[in-house]
């Protein structure tokens, strides 16, 4: 192993992998719930941008990391109300409304950045990390994998909550019914519109949290277009993982570790073409999820508006 691959360098790579995976996990879990309920949320990228700005602004205003995360989640949910009104309630095309949300949110956040921060580019202090007792002492792996801000652990815990909800609760069953056979759910006396609205707003909140995490913990600064397509990657993860939250986590972590691997290969001076190195994360995630998730299928009513009495 080249001398450059010492413990601090490997720890930085592992830390970077987890920090870059978390926004994808949060947004991907949200998208998964929305799709499970039958709504394709293409506006995820825009909701992440809105959450990133809100999270950064709140943290900068003195509300701390948790305040910033909360603000990001709330603003993401608020933006998703557009999706609820136009797609769930009015039955408009989900792809078109989603694209409009992303374009609109990107424009508005750029405008607000220009008004608020473009002369000073304020930066946040590094988010305080907590070392998990025992685990963080493991040589090489410990410092990178088990020393993070608590919001990181909370984000991973949410995946377990989602998995529990889908498998063990009526809410999970209702969400699946809203995406598979909404008329049956309606016949059972459950309001399909309300179920889908809740799912879309949770997706917005999760995307907002992902954006806030990226701005507050991942970068410590907000600049326009900073999500850089993370919302779309989260959509792909959610679609390939189908209705398995832990697969979203696995896919996002794989993506994050591959990103760090690209850095390691470059910094280590490994003679591999950069284009190939930079394709690695995308290739790896697609290969794994396509191979192991090839039997997965999307909900039957995905993307279709529901109107009572219509077939």
């Amino acid at each position: 192993m080249p001398p450059i691959f010492n413990e601090p360098f490997l720890a930085a790579l592992l830390t970077g992998a987890i920090i870059s995976a978390l926004p994808l996990i949060l947004a991907g879990l949200g998208e998964q719930m929305s799709e499970r309920a039958g709504v394709m949320n293409i506006g995820l990228e825009g909701m992440m941008m809105a959450g990133a700005l809100a999270g950064f602004a709140a943290t900068l205003a003195g509300l701390g990391v948790w305040g910033g995360m909360l603000a990001g989640g709330l603003v993401g949910a608020a933006v998703s109300v557009i999706m609820v009104l136009f797609c769930v309630r009015q039955g408009m095309n989900q792809i078109i409304v989603g694209i409009a949300i992303t374009l609109g949110a990107t424009g508005v956040t750029s405008l607000m950045h220009n008004a608020w921060y473009s002369r000073t580019y304020p930066r946040l202090d590094a988010a305080e990390k907590i070392a998990l007792p025992g685990l963080s002492q493991i040589p090489v792996l410990g410092p990178g994998l088990f020393t993070h801000h608590p919001a990181t652990w909370a984000g991973l815990f949410v995946a377990l909550v989602f998995a529990f909800v889908y498998r063990q609760t009526f809410l999970g069953l209702n969400l699946a019914s809203a995406g598979e056979k909404p008329d049956a759910l309606d016949a059972a006396g459950i309001d399909v519109t309300r179920t889908r609205s809740v799912a879309v707003m949770v997706a917005g909140a999760m995307a907002g949290l992902g954006g806030a995490y990226m701005a507050v913990i991942g970068s410590g600064i907000f600049v326009p277009h900073m999500t850089g397509g993370a919302g779309y990657i989260a959509i792909v993860l959610a679609m390939l993982a189908r209705d398995r939250p832990l697969w979203v986590v696995g896919g996002a972590l794989l993506f994050g570790f591959c990103l760090s691997a690209t850095t390691a290969l470059q910094v280590g001076g490994i003679e591999v073409p950069t284009d190939f190195i930079q394709m690695l994360p995308f290739l790896a995630v697609m290969a794994v999820l396509v191979l192991f998730g090839r039997n997965a299928r999307l909900p039957r009513a995905l993307g279709q508006p529901y109107h009572r009495g219509q077939r």
């Binding site: 010492n6 601090p8 930085a12 830390t15 870059s20 701005a215 900073m226 760090s260 850095t263 910094v267």
Partner: peptide, 28 residues
């Protein structure tokens, strides 16, 4: 010299820039 590229066109990727730069700094 430690040379690292953030991405194919990562002109606004502040999170990626921070991640890559922290790794380069960690290499001393």
């Amino acid at each position: 010299l430690r040379y690292a590229i953030i991405g194919p066109a990562a002109y606004a990727d502040v999170a990626g820039a921070r991640r890559v730069t922290e790794s380069v700094i960690a290499s001393n």
